Structure formats: C-alpha cells, structure tokens
Simulated assay, not measured.
Amino acid sequence: MSSTQYSSSASSFNNDSDNQGPPCHCLQSTIPCISWSDENPGRRYFNCQAHGFVVWIDKEQPCLWQTRSLLEARDKIRRQSHDIKAFREALDKANAQVAALEISRITGPRIEFLKAVEELLKQNVLESDKKLRTFVVSSWGGFLLATAVLLYAMKK
C-alpha cells in the first residue's frame, strides 16, 4: 500500500454486519479499513492493530475511472484541509491582533491617567520636602535664637 505522491493512509469504517475480519497471524482480531493510497484508493481491507494490512475485503481493484475519481477527490480533500488549517491560523493571528488593539485602546487612557497621577504625586512630594526643609531650618533658627537669648540673659 505504498504511495507514489503521498504517504499511504487509511481510515477505518463501521460495517455493522461484518465488524471484525479474519484474525491476523498473531491471532489478534482485525478491523475493516479503507485504503487511500495511490495504488488502491477507496479499496477496503482488514487491518491488524499490531501488524497492519491482513487481507483485502474488496477482491478486485477499482477500474481506471474510479481510481482517478477517488484520487482526485482525495487530493481535493487534502488541499481543502490544508486551506482550512491556514485559514484557522490566519484567523487566530487576526483575533490576537484585534485583542491586542482592544487592550491598547482600553488601557491607553488609563496609562495616560496613571502617568498624570504619578506626575502630581511627584510634585506633591517635592512641595512636601520643601515645606519640611523650611520647617526644619526655621525650627533650628528659632532654637539658636532662643539659646542665644538665654545665654545673653544668663551672662547679665
């Protein structure tokens, strides 16, 4: 079941009347599958979970037009699956960009507000520092003046 253009692939299917096939040489049960290889597109076979292919269900191979139709359908499905995957990736990327824009739109004014608040706080701290320095200098000046007056009074 090798493929010339694509790797061989298969899919299992449910057939209620004949769900299990003949046992494999390892005595494990087999399940019905459909081949999607280039050589046997759409052809059904029994598959062992451990060893793979066991025996064909469809004894004859499909005729040329069936093979061609099945291969074209398989290739079209693969292309469409690839396109869908690419569209999903593009959609995810676009959604991420929209989310980033929305976050920046929402947080933009807040960031500006926070910057303005921070600037006001800096100004208040600077003013408070100036007032504290003025108070300390005035207090020391008053202390020195009071000490000088007391010393002068004690000398007399």
Rank of each mutant, 00 (worst) to 15 (best):
Q123V: 13
A10T: 04
H51M: 05
V54Y: 02
V98D: 12
I106E: 14
A86H: 06
A50P: 05
L101G: 12
V125E: 15
E102R: 13
P109C: 01
K76A: 14
E102T: 14
A99E: 08
I34A: 01
S35I: 00
E118N: 12
N47P: 00
K59M: 11
Q97C: 05
S12L: 06
T147M: 11
C24R: 00
E89T: 07
I106N: 08
K59F: 10
M1S: 03
E127F: 09
V136Q: 05
G21V: 02
N47A: 05
V117T: 12
L121E: 15
E72V: 14
Y6P: 00
A90S: 10
F46K: 00
A99W: 03
A96F: 03
C48P: 03
D16A: 09
R105L: 10
W65S: 13
G142V: 00
R74F: 02
R68F: 08
S69C: 11
R133L: 13
G42N: 01
E39C: 03
L91A: 11
Y6K: 10
L121C: 12
A50L: 13
D16E: 11
A10D: 07
A153M: 10
I77A: 15
E102G: 06
V117G: 03
F13I: 04
C26H: 04
V98G: 03
C24Y: 04
L150N: 07
Q5Y: 08
D38Q: 05
E102L: 10
V137L: 05
L114V: 04
V98R: 10
I77Q: 15
H51Y: 11
I103H: 10
L144I: 08
F87V: 06
D18A: 11
Q80T: 07
C48N: 00
L151I: 07
L145W: 06
A153C: 06
D83V: 06
F113L: 12
N14E: 10
L27Q: 15
K156D: 13
G141S: 05
K155F: 09
S138K: 13
S3R: 10
A90V: 02
S35G: 00
I31H: 06
F46D: 00
S11C: 05
L71H: 02
L132C: 07
A146K: 02
E119L: 14
K122Y: 13
W56Q: 00
S138T: 14
N95I: 03
N124G: 06
E89N: 09
N95R: 08
S104Q: 14
I31M: 06
N95M: 08
H51D: 15
G108W: 03
T107L: 15
I34R: 04
V136F: 01
N40K: 05
G21C: 01
N14K: 09
A99V: 04
G52D: 02
S9P: 00
K59E: 13
S138M: 09
V54H: 04
A90I: 03
T30E: 02
I106M: 09
W65K: 08
Q123I: 13
